[in-house]
Simulated scan of single mutants.
Amino acid sequence: MPLPFDVLAEPTRRRILDLLLERPRLVGELTEQLGLSQPGTSKHLRVLREAGLVRVRAEAQRRWYELCPEPLREVDAWLTPYRSLWGAGLDALERHLDAMPDETEEPR
């Protein structure tokens, strides 16, 4: 079974997850949104399914794909220690912007 990190390295698969974050979708809709062939989209969906990142729900002849957020917790847990680095950088940017003169003020 592929690991979430390996699967997420591919930009098209991240785009599929972005689309599924909005709502469940049919293969045809994903194909249209991605600009890929149906077999190409299906291959990406298979990899995402094998990694546990998406699940398929059959409804008559239709196959709905939906996001499974559980494996993303592993990615989130790995990123947690790095968030302090981003926070520090954003705090420094905020201090810098606060120290800059306000360009909207009229000169005296």
Rank of each mutant, 00 (worst) to 15 (best):
A88S: 08
A88F: 08
D18V: 14
D91N: 10
A58C: 03
R55E: 13
P81C: 15
P11R: 02
R63K: 13
S42E: 11
E94M: 10
P2S: 03
D91T: 12
L67F: 00
G52T: 00
E50N: 03
G28K: 08
R49Y: 07
R23F: 06
R15K: 12
G35P: 02
P107V: 04
T12Q: 05
R13Q: 02
S42R: 13
Q61E: 11
Q61H: 06
E50A: 03
E70H: 07
E10I: 04
V56L: 15
L45Q: 01
M1D: 10
L79N: 04
A9I: 06
A92Q: 08
L53Q: 05
Y65A: 12
D102S: 13
R23M: 06
L3D: 09
A9T: 07
E32F: 15
D76C: 01
L97E: 05
C68T: 06
L93M: 05
D91W: 13
H44T: 05
R15V: 02
D98W: 06
E103D: 13
G87P: 07
Y65C: 08
L26C: 10
S37G: 10
R49P: 04
V27M: 14
G28I: 09
E70K: 07
P11N: 03
A88C: 09
A51T: 09
A9S: 12
V27I: 15
K43Y: 10
P69Y: 15
R57I: 14
A77C: 03
A58E: 04
D18L: 15
R14L: 08
L20R: 04
R23N: 06
E10T: 01
V7I: 04
A99P: 03
P4A: 02
L36D: 07
I16R: 03
A9W: 04
E106V: 11
R83I: 09
F5C: 06
W78F: 15
T41D: 07
A60Q: 06
L19R: 01
V27E: 13
P39H: 11
R46F: 07
R13S: 01
A99T: 05
R13Y: 01
D18G: 13
H96F: 09
Q61V: 14
F5S: 07
L93N: 03
V75G: 14
P71S: 03
V7C: 01
G28A: 10
L85M: 13
G40H: 12
G28F: 12
D98E: 09
S42I: 13
L20Y: 02
R73D: 10
R46M: 10
L90C: 01
L72W: 13
M100H: 05
H44I: 09
E103H: 11
R73I: 15
P2Y: 02
P71T: 02
P24V: 09
D91L: 15
V75H: 13
E105C: 13
L53F: 07
I16V: 14
S37T: 11
R83G: 08
V27D: 09
D102I: 15
E50P: 00
A58N: 03
L19Q: 00
A99I: 05
H44D: 06
D102L: 13
G87L: 15
E106C: 09
E50K: 04
G28D: 15
T80H: 05
V7M: 00
M1H: 10
P4Y: 02
E106A: 12
L72R: 11
E106F: 08
R62W: 14
R95C: 11
L26M: 14
L17H: 06
P4D: 01
P39W: 06
L45F: 02
L72A: 10
R63H: 14
L20E: 02
V54D: 02
R57D: 14
P4S: 01
A58V: 00
